[in-house]
Simulated scan of single mutants.
Amino acid sequence: MLRNKEFRHFAILFIIMAAVTVMAGFAVSPAAGILVLITDAAFGIAFYVFTKARYKSIAETADQIDLVLHNADRLYIGESEEGELSILHSEITKMTLRIREQNDALRKEKQHLADSMADIAHQLRTPLTSVNLILSIIENSSDENERKALLRETEELFVHMDWLITSLLKISRLDAGIVVFQSENIDVSALINSALRPLLIPMELHNITCHTNVPEGAAILGDSGWLSEAVQNILKNCMESAGDNGTIQIVCEDTPLFTGINIRDSGQGIEKEDIPRLFDRFYRGNSDKATGYGIGLALCKMIITRQGGTITAKNHPEGGALFVIRFPK
C-alpha cells in the first residue's frame, strides 16, 4: 500500500493530525490525551485494515485481468459487497468476457480461413491435375480427332476454373462486407429470363425443357444483377440433376405476404443426408456421382439471405429436387 503515492500522503497527514490532537488532549488533561490517543489509534487501525482489504481485492482483479490478457482459459472475479468496487468488478467482468468472446471468434475465423484456403487449393488442384494429364495424352496422341476432343475438354476445364476463381472472389467480397446491394423493383419474369439466357444453348444441347409460370406484375425488391446470378446458379444445379432429356419447372408465387420462386428439376432428387448441408461452402455431397465444387449454392444463399430473402431445398413429392426462394413484401 505504501507504494501508492496518495496513501503515503494520507498516512503522513494522518500522523501529523494525530500528533497535534494528542498533544492538545494532553494539554487539557492526561485523561483527555489518553482518550484522543486511543481514538486516533483505533481509527488508524480500522482505516488500515479496510484499505488493505480493498487493495487486496483490487490486486486480485488486476491479476485476473492479466491472465485474460495472456489468453488464460479461466476467468474468475469474486463478488464484492455493494459499492463502487462492486460496480467496478461488474464492469471489468463484462469487459473481460467480451474480450474472451472476441478472442474465441478470432480463433474460429482464423481456423475457418485456414480451412477455406485448403479447400480452395484442393478445388483448383483437381482441374489442374486433369489438364496436365490431358496435355500429356495430347502430346503422345497422333489421332487428330482425339487431340481436338481433348483440347475441347481442356478448354472446358479452364472455363470451370475461371468460374471457380470468380465465384471465390465474389464470396470473399461478400464475406468482407464490401458489396453494396442495390434496392430496386425487379420484375420476376425479367429476372428469370436474365438468368436463363446464358443457359439456353447448353439446355438445347442436352435437350432440357424449361417451363415457366410467372404471374403478370410479380416483383421482388433487390439487386437484379446479383439475384440473376443466384437464380442462374440454381438453374445450373438443376440442369446437372435433370440430365439429358430432362425438364425444369419455374413457378412464381405472388401472395400478399411474399413473392416466391420455386425451381424444380426432373432428376433423382437430393440425398436425405445432404439436404441440411446443401448450401454449405465446399460441400459436394456424399454420393460418388456428386459433381461441381460446392461453391454455387453457397454463393446463391449468401446473395439471397443478405438481401432479406430465404432459400430452402427439399425433394418434391412427385420426384426431383425443389428449390424455394422467398422475399417478404
Rank of each mutant, 00 (worst) to 15 (best):
R54S: 10
I58W: 13
T61Y: 11
T61H: 07
L67R: 09
V68N: 14
L69Y: 12
H70M: 05
H70I: 01
N71G: 00
Y76V: 11
I77C: 02
I77H: 05
G78W: 02
S80Y: 08
S80R: 13
E81K: 08
L85F: 09
L85C: 04
S86H: 12
S86T: 04
I87D: 15
I87C: 04
I87P: 01
L88W: 06
I92A: 05
I92T: 03
I92D: 02
T93F: 05
T96L: 15
L97G: 13
L97K: 08
R98A: 05
I99A: 07
R100M: 09
R100Q: 12
R100E: 10
R100V: 08
Q102R: 07
N103S: 03
D104Y: 08
L106C: 03
R107C: 10
K108Y: 06
H112F: 14
H112A: 14
L113D: 13
L113G: 02
A114G: 04
D115G: 06
S116A: 06
S116D: 09
M117K: 11
D119S: 15
D119A: 15
D119I: 10
I120E: 04
H122M: 08
Q123P: 02
Q123H: 08
L124G: 00
R125I: 07
R125E: 14
P127M: 11
P127R: 08
T129A: 10
T129G: 13
S130R: 09
S130I: 06
V131F: 05
N132E: 04
L133K: 05
L133N: 02
L135P: 00
S136M: 05
S136K: 08
I137R: 09
I137M: 06
I137H: 03
S141H: 02
S141W: 02
S142T: 14
E144C: 00
N145D: 13
R147W: 00
K148W: 00
A149V: 01
A149H: 05
L150C: 02
L151M: 02
L151R: 00
R152Q: 13
R152Y: 13
E153N: 12
E153F: 07
E155A: 15
E156C: 03
E156F: 07
L157T: 02
